[in-house]
Amino acid sequence: MSGPGAERQWVLLSYRLPREPSTPRITVWRKLKRMGVAQISDGLVALPADARTREQLDWIAEEVTDFGGTATVWIAHPAAAGDEQQLIDALTQARAAEYQQVRSEAEAAGETDDLGRRRALTRLRAELRRIQRRDYFPPPDRHAAEQAVNALHPANTRKESTP
């Protein structure tokens, strides 16, 4: 985390797509969700700017244009630190909720048999990776989720602790 006064840049995508057909709108929204964007308002989303997020939003903009919509990409910084903090908090909480979900699924799978644990390990590792790729402000839940998932591997399975 950078201290107060440090200037963080954001990449903003402003886009408009026709109401109908709805498929392109859904396609674009799914992709944005997958990237973990913060939605500022209808048709305006933000990500902390780095080489990858700038490029990702550039290509979404291109896709919007291909679908007959309009899109522009901006590099910005908020005028008020409080506004930025709200954006960061929203992103942090969104990821925290996802990590908590993975953790509880991993813990539930831990109660099942060998095969169940193996299957859950594969599935939850993939899910964890998806979340990590869109995690720009790691919450403490990240580490807990990683540990819970790794504990599903036979090499990490400990004998039942006393209840």
């Binding site: 550039d58 290509w59 903009a61 291109e62 896709e63 291909d66």
Partner: peptide
């Protein structure tokens, strides 16, 4: 690059 024929298209 955005706008180029040889860019990202149709996924």
């Amino acid at each position: 690059m955005r706008g180029a024929e040889l860019g990202h298209h149709h996924g």
